[in-house]
Design a protein around this nucleic acid. Structure first.
Lengths: 152, 152
DNA sequence: ATAAGTGCAAAACATTTGCAATATA
DNA sequence: TATATTGCAAATGTTTTGCACTTAT
């Protein structure tokens, strides 16, 4: 698929999803989405911005940042777990797992023997020096559910 | 266990670990560790700082921040996965899993049917509105391993 | 036309760094 | 006493906010 096709395809995909939410499809949004798909390393807004500003010198960092947040709200993309918040510390160094509330950021520890015993795929084990693993469960916590209901 | 006992116990634990690394046990470090253990929600340096500065008005934010980073380096505590770095975005919204290099932060996606099918424990499923899950594998990536070796 | 989106500049935070003063062992 | 640690102040970097201007529909 050449660049032109990718642009068209990307544009079409965005057009559908954006129409559903009454949002406009702007050149900036198309460029940002295209760049994010091309980048394989889960880049930050800064990284995306640096890459596209060569071809689009007028684009502002704010637009890139706000656009990515918009995409994430629509569910078009996801923020990498934990990233974007101040560094948080866990005194529990034994293996355990985390439930994270996507709304308020609350983290609840839980134990699960099944999860502790997971076999890491060879694809990863053979390529990297694996030190540990954990399961992250995402959802809405009890308090946030309550608040959402109360707001209605 | 009363406050006094906790203080003593905490002090002893720190003393052992710190002695191993030729680090000093200071009142600040004891207080910070004590507060982190008491806090169940994986607090940030700012949160810890706000809590202990009532009782220790002279303590500085830097000390709290640097101390927590020191603890993490010693393996006494852990930084919550992903926290502390700029928000990063993932265009892949389908279920998949992450290898994260603890040294350079590189994230590598991988698929694993076993992991996709994990059954979330009732303890969590019954209490929260679960939206998804993923497995985080931590380790040192190939490039970082190479660099460590080359530095010798 | 009009509502949504953009770019800019300033503000608000978080984090890091260098250094002189202080406290631990 | 010697060295590690602390507190402070300044620098850096990230994210957010308000607003006037521009653009997509």
């Amino acid at each position: 698929m050449n660049e032109e096709d990718l642009l068209v395809t990307t544009g079409e995909k965005l057009r559908k999803i954006f129409k559903k939410h009454n949002l406009k499809v702007t050149p900036q949004r198309v460029v940002i989405y295209k760049e994010l798909i091309r980048s394989k390393e889960h880049p930050s807004a800064t990284v995306i911005f640096d890459r596209i500003k060569r071809a689009f010198p007028n684009i502002s960092f704010d637009t890139v940042n706000r656009t990515l947040l918009t995409f994430a709200e629509l569910g078009l993309i996801k923020a990498v777990e934990g990233s974007g918040e101040p560094k948080r510390f866990d005194p529990n160094t034994a293996i355990h797992h985390h439930f994270i509330c996507v709304r308020c950021g609350k983290i609840v520890d839980f134990k699960c023997d099944e999860f502790d015993k997971l076999q890491i795929p060879n694809e990863i084990k053979d390529r990297f020096n694996v030190l540990g693993h954990k399961v992250i469960v995402e959802g809405i916590c009890d308090e946030c559910s309550k608040n959402i209901k109360n707001k209605k």
